[in-house]
Simulated scan of single mutants.
Amino acid sequence: MDDILQDDGWFSEETATFGDRLAGAREAEGLTQTELARRIGVKIKTLRGWEEDLNEPRANKLQMLSGLLNVSLRWLLTGEGEGINEPSHGPDDLPEMRDLLLEIRDIKSQMSRSADQLGRLEKRLRKRLGGAVT
């Protein structure tokens, strides 16, 4: 069963983001977001941003994450190399779970685009109001 998951590349670049791999590795180590953020010296908001793929860590933090989470830097970035074991689910669960992950990623992308659009609209409105609204 693990071979099936390995072949499908649960954490591969095609099926998972950096944030997915970071969260998976953190959970595999039994760490909370708060614990990991404290251990690498960042605010929890920063770590959440990384796990939600809103921001990316700098090179020095990537190296720290790799060491603390016992995964290769290459795996964190691409899903290739030494990483964590993929979740153990039956082969019948995989298509549905993968579809759910893809749907979640699509919604996150739509939300990000909507937030950008909302920001642009707000900026235009503020400009037209001459800065009267804060």
Rank of each mutant, 00 (worst) to 15 (best):
G83F: 02
I84L: 12
E86V: 00
E96Y: 05
S88W: 12
M97N: 10
P95C: 01
E96T: 05
L101K: 15
P87L: 00
G79W: 01
G83N: 04
L101H: 14
S88M: 13
L76P: 04
R98W: 04
D93C: 10
P87W: 01
P87V: 01
G90P: 06
E82M: 11
L76F: 03
D99I: 00
L94H: 12
E86H: 12
G81C: 08
T78S: 09
L100F: 12
G81F: 05
I84N: 11
S72T: 13
G81W: 09
R74A: 11
E80Q: 14
L100V: 05
W75T: 09
L73H: 13
S88E: 15
P95D: 01
W75R: 10
S72I: 07
M97L: 15
L101M: 15
R98T: 12
D93T: 12
E82I: 13
H89C: 05
G90M: 08
E86P: 09
D92S: 11
H89D: 07
S72H: 06
P87S: 01
E82D: 15
L101Y: 15
G79N: 03
P91V: 08
E82L: 13
M97W: 13
T78D: 04
S88G: 09
E80T: 13
H89V: 14
S88K: 12
D92A: 12
E82P: 02
L101V: 01
M97S: 05
P87H: 02
P95E: 01
H89T: 10
D92E: 13
S72Y: 06
G81R: 07
I84K: 10
L76A: 09
S72N: 10
L77D: 00
H89K: 08
L77S: 03
L101T: 11
E82F: 10
D93P: 00
G81N: 10
P95L: 01
G90H: 15
P87I: 00
I84Q: 11
S88R: 14
L76V: 10
D99Q: 13
L100C: 04
E80I: 08
